[in-house]
């Protein structure tokens, strides 16, 4: 499953990079979203994928029973998801504001500081 997902993540990154290279600022945001999803999946995949064994400890036990999924990458990804949302919310509002002021969504028209 991991090797298959490596290809999926690669394709997601390709789509993200392509969108981020576009001149339209809306496409840049879409690219950013795909990028954060792809990055989260990348960490998830390379740390190994385990089916049906969440890192939980049964009541009364001192440790999990049997082999469980690695909890550390999950903690990292959880943080990343939330931060990515914060960045996205900020970016979206910023873009909207920039569009109102500058009157274009073409990034090449926004390169001067005095518009």
């Amino acid at each position: 499953m991991e090797s298959l997902m490596a290809y999926v993540v690669g394709i997601m990154f390709t789509a993200a990079f392509y969108m981020m290279l576009r001149r339209s600022i809306v496409k840049l945001v879409i690219g950013l979203m795909i990028l954060s999803n792809a990055a989260n999946l990348l960490i998830f995949v390379v740390s190994g994928m385990t089916r049906g064994a969440p890192p939980l400890i049964p009541e009364g036990a001192s440790g999990p029973v049997g082999i469980v999924a690695d909890p550390l990458p999950q903690a990292l990804i959880l943080t990343a998801i939330v931060i990515a949302f914060g960045v996205l919310a900020f970016a979206v509002v910023l873009i909207r504001r920039a569009y109102e002021v500058v009157g274009t969504d073409d990034l090449d028209q926004m390169k001067d500081t005095d518009t």
């Binding site: 090797s3 490596a6 993540v9 690669g10 997601m12 390709t14 990079f17 290279l21 576009r22």
Partner: peptide, 21 residues
């Protein structure tokens, strides 16, 4: 041009992931 760079980057990421695994 952008597509070529994006595909190159994506393929590199896939290869790195496979190597890490």
């Amino acid at each position: 041009r952008d597509l070529a760079v994006a595909i190159f980057s994506g393929v590199t990421i896939t290869l790195i992931m496979l190597a890490v695994l």
